[in-house]
Design a protein around this nucleic acid. Sequence first.
DNA 1: GTAGGGTTAG
Length: 692
Amino acid sequence: MAIRGPEMVFAGYVALLDECVEKRALREGQRVHAHMIKTCYLPPVYLWTRLMVFYTKNGLLGDARRVLDEMPLRNVVSWTAMISAYSQKGYASEALDLFQQMLRSETEPNEFTFATILATCTGASGFQLGRQVHSLVIKNNYESQIFVGSSLLDMYAKAGKIHEAREVFECLPERDVVSCTAIISGYAQLGMDEEAIELFSRLQREGMDSNYVTYASVLTALSGLAALNHGRQVHGHVLRREVPFYVVLQNSLIDMYSKCGSVTYARRVFDSMSERTVISWNAMLMGYSKHGIGRQVVELFELMRKEKKVAPDSVTLLAVLSGCSHGGLEERGLQLFHEIINGEHGVQPEMGHYGCVIDMLGRAGQLQEAFEHIQRMPFEPTPAIWGSLLGACRVHSNVDIGELVGHKLLELEPENAGNYVILSNLYATAGRWEDVRNVRHLMKEKAVIKEPGRSWVELDQVLHTFHASDRLHPRRGEVFEKVKDLALKIKALGYVPDLSCAFHDVDDEQKEKILLGHSEKLALAFGLMGSAEGVPVRVIKNLRICVDCHNFAKFVSKLYAREISLRDKNRFHHIVNGICTCGDYWAAKPLTTAAAALRRRLFSSSSGPSRWATPGHEERPKGYLFNRPPPPPGQARKWEDWELPCYVTSFLTIVILGVGLNAKPDLTIETWAHQKALERLQMEQQQMSESD
DNA sequence: GTAGGGTTAG
């Protein structure tokens, strides 16, 4: 009896704690703990750990930590359980700190510890530690363990080191759904959408298992490619396979449909959900916002507030502000901003909220006001805020403020090609070619490369990519002819090329030629060539669409009575019969009287001392750039032919996102190069048989 | 008793 007694007590405590964990019975569990103390029971390490886990499962990390601290003896499980609890609740620094304490205590980590701690090593600072942990993993020979391996590859992918992630993945002796999803999602989150789909397709052929997380990641990649048909196929596939419609998957579907141009389908998914998270609302609001449907944004936001089931967060308010800005509801947007800074929505105002207002003012042409508001913000302005103002200066051809802002941006972000391009374009608009040359020279000096402009169009399940002045597309001759033909026809309707969009110091004929080579025009022409009358054409561009291409598309839509949908980096443009839903939003549209009054009310009270010296840009000579004196008046400037990489690089990618899921059990994808190689092989074989 | 991948924005 003397031996059985303590065993029974131990077993009793274990059973009780198990039940408390299972039934989430906090009070009862606390009574069990109190009983241990009262009876001076000294539990073995196993029971101490169970007690600690009971507290972590109930979200009481402080109590759990006290249990850990009081334990006379800890083992790897007790350390790992606490580290895991910190990690899962988002206390990364506490988790890392405890891990270091564990190492100092000379407890050997196991595969559970490594898998947990690697998942905590995210972000730039985490990556440094993650690499050190990787050394330990190798030392302890856990690199091939599947949980550790997937956590390791995910750590690399999240740090943007996708090649290292892929290497870890390829070296795994076995793969499962989590490791496969981690690498696919790694590509998708870095915007390497084609690579993500290609890998997904390959792994599927190799027999990979997929679950709702895999499909959510695949949908992210398809959203990036705006591959609506393939997104639909994935939707159909998950329905047929009866994959559980967890909220994460539904959120991904909402996002896919809206990024692929179909807010109606996105809304259908949204309406069908039995449970919604704040991300569901945000994805739907963002969808309306990007489509410029301001009224729907406001209505949905009101519904969210009325329902009171889910509280808005900072992203919600960002979506609504941006929706008001893009949907022509500046007054409502400014009103909302007023409410945010008054704390009416329970969310601290963030940089992004201020950014939306700066953007609104900038597009309305109130550049000086926007500049002053940036200076008075309670935050250190980010390059994105200055970038928004620089863009507005370019639209409104305000070289004075633009030059100042551009100069600041080049100092802040010397590696961002976009800033050089906008500044250079601003100078080009003003005919200041010497300054254009200086900016481009600086860009070369710093080896900054502009992202080449690309446009996509999907035809018969094939996603075609065009670059500006594409030189490799097998049907480029026909496409260029079609663009020229379209230009000729719409000129008769009143289209005048906007030569200010060709930022080169060449004659007008050359400028027009450059404009005709823009990738979105090529994709649009190709879309028209390959689709039946009346079928909408959907084009996607990786950068902002230029004013001339936008105008071109408007005339084409009228000429052919075709609906044209254009998704650029910023938003959607739905063009029907020559009218775009964006309402030509970059054009100068002053604020309404009511909005202007609201703006004055909003910002007059915040006119505290500026954190920066008042800009003395008016004192600078007009040619000011990088402390160079202006060129002597009237001096002939020699044009240096400086080709933008998008004109140099004429790279073609055609991804054949193959046969639908209806025909084959799984989504397939093959590269154009692969198909070409097959065709060549077939041709060669045919020639050989003929010569025989 | 302890573990890995996921959805909005940026």
